[in-house]
Amino acid sequence: MRELRLHGRGGQGTVIASKLLAVALFLEGRQVQSFPMFGVERRGAPVTAFLRLDDAPILLRCEISAPDELIVLDATLVGATDVTAGLKPGGDILINSPLSPEDFPLLSARFRVSTVDATGIAIRHGLGSPTQPIVNTAILGAFSTDSGLVRLSTVVDAIREEVPMQIEANIAAATEASLAVRRMNAPEVARA
């Protein structure tokens, strides 16, 4: 079983990203469970969502405190909040940022960091507004190549199934992002 945590800000589509990813994984025949941080929804507050996946039925029905990997939809959250809390040593972090993984030295020392400019891609494809781009589909495209956990084609299928509008633009963004991931040059950190 793998456990993921997604971090974003209100309006970026974080909860939908976890749902989309769950649908994509489900389409690949995996068992999935996705949920938002349980709580009161406050507009504009940082948003956290979770995802479990497994090949066997998922029995755990509790919150995720020690995820295997992170998806960070807004790089400004790094530093502003403790995004890596509970992340297993050597765990994967995918950050939406135009910078390279080495630009996050504190993280790359302990985890395997990748980046993708999902914001730039989303804006190019007209997703959301330039001030409030919706980056969830782009980052999932990047996640597919970066993690190898899910195929881009099933992410695309999930978008077709779940996204109510701008389907083609979202697919194009996911596809472009899948080719734009920047990984760490340093040798792999030891996985726990």
Binding site: S18, K19, A22, F26, Q31, F38, I58, R61
Partner: peptide, 12 residues
């Protein structure tokens, strides 16, 4: 159904 643990949790 349990609040959030089922109500807000997506599964197949």
């Amino acid at each position: 159904l349990d609040g959030f643990y089922l109500s807000h949790t997506a599964e197949a």
